[in-house]
């Protein structure tokens, strides 16, 4: 018997002994933490899906577009990300260029995206497109490390996003549409450009947006970015920029 069959056989054998049903709070009177077991529902069916059971109780995602925008801005601020809202692509350009000049960026990396391309046109520094035809054709396995080195040397990464999540202040990026895997984590600064229509209320809504966009064949990587990279490993003191970006900008256009 191979390992797969052996493990599955052990698991099946173990599950022939029925266990108690899912935990439920014992009731308001019993106090916090007290739990009881409900009777187990038949195998393969749940009385209610976990998400549906949780939905009314999870942190709020905002009922109206205005609520969601306010919540998103508030959450991004708490996460120490920098949030800007600008009326036009032109204004976004002005903002980005001033950040570039102020920080003396030499080279920024980007990934083709309908919103990124026009904003980046005319930026006062060199640009490095990570999904150039050459990069797409390259077999990174046999190729030298040059593409990684080029990206590592960039001062910032500029991407779009698949969704912004008001509930948590998260930015959803994917390997297919928003920078591949490294662009949003390797350079020390990450700039995200997005439109207000991309704001969704909750994580569950972001999953819905993904399904709508990609059907069932998702990009190989989907990542929820919630604030700039951080660590608390030294004496539980917060430090930004552990391995990923130290700074995260979100520019909302429109």
């Amino acid at each position: 018997m191979n390992a797969r069959e052996a493990i599955l056989a052990r698991v099946r054998e173990a599950l022939t002994v029925p266990g108690p049903g899912p935990h439920q709070r014992a009731g308001e009177m019993a106090g916090h933490g007290a739990t009881t077991h409900t009777a187990p529902p038949p195998r393969g069916s749940l009385p209610v899906l976990a998400l549906e059971a949780a939905r009314p109780w999870l942190p709020d995602g905002g009922a109206t577009p205005e609520d969601r925008l306010a919540l998103l801005a508030d959450n991004l601020g708490k996460l120490k990300a920098v949030f800007h809202r600008v009326p036009t692509i032109h204004a976004a350009q002005d903002l980005l260029f001033s950040i570039a000049r102020e920080r003396d960026w030499k080279r920024v990396a980007w990934h083709a995206h309908p919103l990124v391309e026009p904003i980046l046109a005319g930026i006062p520094c060199a640009t490095h497109r990570v999904d150039s035809a050459a990069a797409l054709a390259a077999d990174l396995a046999t190729d030298s490390t040059t593409p990684k080195d080029a990206l590592e040397a960039c001062d910032a990464g500029i991407t779009g996003c698949d969704a912004l999540v008001a509930q948590t202040g998260s930015i959803l990026v994917s390997s297919a549409t928003c920078g591949g895997r490294a662009l949003s984590v390797l350079p020390p600064v990450h700039v995200v450009v997005a439109t207000p229509e991309q704001i969704v209320a909750t994580l569950a809504d972001a999953f819905d947006a993904l399904r709508e966009r990609h059907g069932s064949s998702f990009p190989s990587m989907l990542s929820f970015i919630t604030g700039p990279s951080r660590t608390g490993d030294i004496e539980r003191i917060l430090v930004l920029g552990a391995h990923g970006p130290k700074e995260l900008f979100v520019i909302l256009v429109g």
Partner: peptide, 26 residues
């Protein structure tokens, strides 16, 4: 775990680099 709304990176991986993607493991 840490008192955060969500940790900084929550990432889903479905496989190696897919066709049309610019990086990722083979």
């Amino acid at each position: 775990g840490t008192g955060q709304p969500l940790t900084c990176y929550n990432t889903l991986y479905g496989g190696p680099r897919a066709p049309g993607e610019c990086d990722g493991p083979r």
